[in-house]
Simulated scan of single mutants.
Amino acid sequence: MRPTLLILPALALLAGCASTGTTSRPARAGPIPIPTGTLGLEGVLGQNARGLVARFGTPTADLMEGTARKLQFSSATCVLDAYLYPKGSSEPTVTYLDTRQTDGSPIDRASCVSALQMRARTGK
């Protein structure tokens, strides 16, 4: 019986170490809004063909399909396909961009735009 008597006081001491109150958690920061993918593309979306050529230089490809037009620009870093569509009787403007690395893997559209602008400025 003696071992049982020794265990009871030890358990009582351990019970005193237990927390009886609730602990408060630090406040978490709210979610950070992420742009919808057009940040850095303001100078391209809505641009006409002349504006794209002024920004990126001569396109690698220029394709027409009905009233739609696709201009493709490329560099050692990436390929950009700009799709131009008319609104009513106005001149076609860029309404959609598709970008990819030269090996076909994905790349951020704004990064590709920056790379193409740099190539146009430096000629490399």
Score class of each variant (00 low, 15 high):
40 G>T: 05
41 L>P: 00
41 L>E: 01
42 E>Y: 04
43 G>Q: 09
44 V>D: 01
44 V>K: 02
44 V>E: 02
44 V>N: 02
44 V>W: 03
45 L>N: 04
45 L>T: 05
46 G>M: 03
46 G>T: 01
46 G>I: 02
46 G>R: 01
46 G>D: 01
46 G>S: 05
47 Q>T: 13
48 N>M: 09
48 N>L: 06
48 N>C: 09
48 N>Q: 12
48 N>P: 04
49 A>P: 00
50 R>D: 15
50 R>M: 11
50 R>T: 15
51 G>V: 08
51 G>K: 09
51 G>F: 09
51 G>Q: 08
51 G>R: 09
51 G>H: 10
51 G>N: 08
52 L>R: 08
53 V>S: 05
53 V>L: 03
53 V>P: 00
53 V>D: 02
53 V>W: 03
54 A>N: 12
54 A>L: 11
54 A>D: 13
55 R>M: 15
55 R>K: 15
55 R>P: 01
56 F>S: 06
56 F>P: 01
56 F>N: 04
56 F>C: 04
56 F>Y: 10
56 F>L: 04
57 G>K: 10
57 G>L: 11
57 G>A: 11
57 G>R: 10
57 G>Q: 09
58 T>P: 01
59 P>Y: 13
60 T>E: 14
60 T>D: 15
60 T>G: 10
60 T>A: 15
61 A>G: 00
61 A>V: 00
61 A>Q: 06
61 A>R: 08
62 D>E: 07
62 D>R: 12
63 L>W: 05
63 L>H: 11
64 M>C: 00
64 M>I: 04
64 M>V: 07
65 E>R: 13
65 E>W: 09
65 E>Q: 13
66 G>S: 09
67 T>G: 01
67 T>N: 05
68 A>P: 00
68 A>R: 11
69 R>N: 08
70 K>P: 00
70 K>N: 12
70 K>V: 15
71 L>G: 08
71 L>P: 03
71 L>R: 07
72 Q>D: 06
72 Q>L: 10
72 Q>T: 15
72 Q>K: 11
72 Q>V: 15
72 Q>I: 14
73 F>E: 04
74 S>T: 13
74 S>Y: 01
74 S>P: 00
75 S>N: 06
75 S>A: 12
75 S>I: 07
